[in-house]
Structures are given as C-alpha cells and as structure tokens.
Design a binder for these strands. Structure first.
Length: 491
DNA sequence: CTAGGGTTAG
C-alpha cells in the first residue's frame, strides 16, 4: 500500500525529511506546497478517533521530520493517550523512523501516566531500532519514578542502565542524585553519594546537587555540612555552590544570614554574577523589603552586570506582590522601552497574575492580548491564572468562556486547569453545573490525568444529591472499564 | 537532561 519514495536529499543529512505517500496517484512535490504546521497536525490528531487517525494523517504534503514530530508531541503533552497514538501511528510508517528525542518524549508521556509497561516497551523498541536508549532516556525514567513517589525505582533504573546498553558514568550518576533531591529525597541521595564515592570520581557538581537538595528542604546547616565535606575531599566550591547556599538562606527565611553571606561573597572578591543578584533581589522582595530589592538592582546595573530576563521577572514579581501592579507595569514598560530585556512567558504570567490579584481582569486580558507583540502565545499557566480568578470572583461564565477558548489554540488543559474548573462547578449550587463537572471528570481521565480521590468523590456525591444518580452511575461504570488509571483510585 | 536565579493560592 505504501511506497517508499520522495526521500529528499536537498536538506542537511542530519535532518532527514520524508514524505507520506498519497494512496493512488503519485504526487510530485512542487515548491510552495503548504506544509501543515504542528498546530494543524495536533488538531487533526485530537479530532480523529484511533480508527480514522491513519487516514487523517495520510496527507501527501506532510514531510515528517524529528523537529515537527517533537513539536506535535509537545502540543499533545496534556493528552497522553492521543500523543502516544500519534507516536505509534508514525512508528508504523514505511520509511520514517523516529529519532531518539521523539522516543524520549514518548517514554516521558507514558511514564507520566504511570504506564511503566508502555514506557519500557518503548525503550525496547528504541533499542531494536538502534536509536538508544540514551542517558537522557534513563534520566527521564528516573525523574518520573521519583516524581511519582517511587525513588527506589529511580535508583534501580540507574543500576540497570548497563543492561540496556548504556554505561553508567558520573553524569548519569549526578542526574540520579539531582532527580532524587528535586523530589525531596535528599537523605537518600546523600546516602547514595556516600555509597558510590569510590566508584565514581565525584566532582563539584555532585556536591552542589546535594547541598541544593538540603536547601530545598530548608536545612541550610546540612548544606553547610556538605560544603565542608567537599572541601575536605579536596574539591573547590564554585560560584554555583555559593549561589545555592545564598538561595538556601532566603528560602529558609534567614534573611540576616543571607545578607551577611552576600556581603562576605563581595568582600572575598569573588565575582558576583547575575544569578547572585537575581537571588538577592528576589529574596529581599519576598521578605517584604522592596526598597532593598530596588537598591540591589540599581547597584548591579552600576557594577556593569547586565540583568537577565530572570532578574527583571524577579523585580516585577516582587513589585506586584509587595508594592503595586502599577509600579510593576512601570518597570515592565521601561524595560521593554530601554531594551533591557525581552519579556518572556514568565514575565507576562507574572504581570497578568498581578492584575488578576487586584481584580482588574480587563487589563489582565489586555496584557494577554499583547503577548503577540513579543512573539508569545498564552500558555496553559496563563489560562489557569485567568480562569481561576474569574471563578474566584464568581464570574463562572467568563471562566468557562476562557476554558473554551483554549480549545481553539489548541492549548490543552492540564491537571490544574481541570481542578480549577471542576471546583468552580460547585460554587453556584446548580444541578447543571454538576453535570458539567461530571463530564469534565470523564474528560480528564480520558486524557490520562488521575483525579484525586477527593475530586472524584465530590463530583459523584454532588451528582447524587442533585438528582443525577443515573449520570453518577454511568461515570462509575465507564471508569470501571477504563483500565488501570482509575483502578488505582480504589473506588 | 550535569549543578545555581523568574510563574503555583493565604
């Protein structure tokens, strides 16, 4: 049925482009053929069911390339089942072969849905195609295990790497340490480090990771202990070590210690960098010392250190929270005007949240509309903020309207979005709202999200007491069939 | 995807 043809050699060899052949007539690729964008393809995948998918994707003008596939997968990130359907469909393509980064995305998506069997099957497939698995693949698996509360499996996965044709080295070891620390399992990471000290030549990265881990759980004394430990072993602390500790002080609200540490850094003539300044600006601001934040910002400019977007975002956020949105917007406009830095998604989300917080939804939406000026589009987070504040203000209809708008992008709702919208369906005490909540609940499960037991029970109870028992039963029945995801809820 | 700085509610 499929014929292998149209392999294009016009492009760099590293980027292999293929074309999906048209059934029947041969098609010559002429210049100016409309190549569907990743958004178009994502929509196609979302609109077609598994049976019509292959037909829908069999368009002659699609030239598959790793970058395109990855962008589509990213678009479908919040619809795991569809994303994997798409990936598997393309995996059966007669000539296109997924590259390792696409496999990594697929592994990530499967593992995020707690479907480890599927994830490992993909690892196997990768290996048989000689496309991996790579160190990155194992980093992803380890991260998912840790994030899903299975840190022991993170370690086991690391220890089994070599059985899948991937050697353990210091980098992959450091990654495991980091993944454990980021999921608050510092003790475990520290023990692991001590166990493998002789097997790998640990470097400053290893120790920085552990120190940061202790800072994340606000145990700065232990972080200092790690610093001592590394010095004893003859490894020099770096700028990153100091910045990590500085941040640690702020995180555990040790403002005085943070300030002293900062002064000490300056006195020791170690080059204070942009990260140091950003940390201090943010730290003081969060502690309510906005004036000091501003002063440090000016000082940094005076010292000739260029602020980054992160620095600007830190100051803008601090002004929003502890001063006023107005002053934050002044800074925002000034930065854009002076070209000090280019606003990114975070910048916009911060400002938009600031307006929402003072109830100025109109200007919040205005800024949302302005995002295009900087080549940006509203993200899920942007929508989540706006929807949340509309609902909090009792404007449920407008919240739902925004929720509906996401579909056009397409910007798929994530777990937070569903939680916000479903909670809002309880505010008006209307029976119709609960039916909507029920539908949303089914939709989120279909999309690979695992609602909290609390959400599930709340919706079912709500439906039961508003005379929608039949619908409640239907949900229960459907979900009962729906496989392992919901079985974990132990209804 | 080898470490540090901006989005997450009070």
């Amino acid at each position: 049925m499929f014929q292998k043809r149209f392999r294009l050699h016009l492009l760099p060899l590293s980027e292999k482009y293929y074309q999906f052949p048209l059934l029947g007539n041969a098609v010559t690729l002429s210049d100016g053929v409309q190549q569907p964008s990743d958004a178009t393809i994502a929509k196609l995948v979302l609109e077609s069911d598994p049976l019509t998918l292959s037909e829908a994707l069999c368009m002659p003008t699609i030239q598959w390339a790793p970058e395109l596939v990855n962008r589509v997968l990213k678009r479908l990130w919040n619809h795991g089942p569809k994303a994997l359907q798409f990936f598997k469909h393309l995996d059966r393509h007669p000539s296109y072969i997924h590259c390792s980064s696409s496999f990594d995305h697929a592994v990530d998506i499967a593992a995020r849905m707690h479907d480890y069997n599927a994830a490992w099957a993909l690892v196997g497939r990768m290996r048989s195609l000689r496309r991996g698995p790579t160190h990155r693949t194992f980093a992803i698996l380890g991260e998912r295990y840790a994030a899903n509360g299975k840190p022991h499996r993170t370690v086991r996965t690391f220890l089994s790497m070599h059985e899948h044709g991937c050697r353990q080295d210091l980098n992959s070891f450091n990654t495991v340490l980091d993944v454990l620390c980021k999921s608050k399992r510092v003790e475990m990471a520290h023990t692991l480090l001590k166990t493998f000290r002789s097997r790998f030549r640990l470097d400053s990265v290893s120790y920085n990771i552990i120190a940061n881990g202790y800072c994340l759980i606000k145990r700065t004394p232990m972080a200092l202990q790690v610093l001592k430990e590394m010095v004893q072993r003859g490894i020099n602390p770096t700028m990153i070590t100091y910045n990590t500790l500085l941040k640690g002080y702020f995180r555990s609200s040790q403002i005085k210690e943070a300030w002293e540490f900062y002064l000490e850094m300056k006195k020791r003539k170690c080059e204070i960098d942009v990260v140091t300044y950003t940390t201090v600006i943010h730290g003081f601001g969060v502690a309510g010392e906005v004036k000091k934040s501003r002063r440090v910002f000016d000082e940094m400019v005076k010292e000739g250190v260029a602020p980054s977007v992160a620095t600007c975002n830190a100051l803008i956020q601090v002004l929003c929270k502890k001063d006023s949105v107005e002053s934050a917007v002044v800074v925002f406009e000034e930065m854009v005007r002076k070209g000090l830095c280019v606003p990114n998604l975070v910048t916009y989300n911060v400002v938009i949240r600031g307006f929402c917080h003072v109830g100025d939804m109109e200007r919040a939406l205005g800024f949302m509309g302005r995002m295009g000026e900087h080549g940006l589009r509203a993200s899920v987070q942007t929508y989540n903020v706006v929807i949340r504040y509309f609902c909090d203000a009792g404007e449920i209809e407008k919240g739902l309207e925004m929720f509906g708008k996401m579909k056009d992008e397409p910007c798929l709702p994530n777990l937070d979005t569903y939680n916000v919208v479903i909670s809002a369906m309880f505010l008006r005490k209307k029976s119709e709202d609960l039916v909507v909540a029920g539908k949303l609940l089914m939709e989120m499960v279909d999309r690979g999200f695992l609602p909290r037991k609390f959400t599930f029970n709340r919706v079912l109870n709500g439906l039961a007491i508003t005379g929608n028992q039949d619908f409640a039963k239907e949900i229960l029945r459907k979900q009962g069939r729906c496989g392992r995801v919901v079985r974990r809820l132990k209804l």
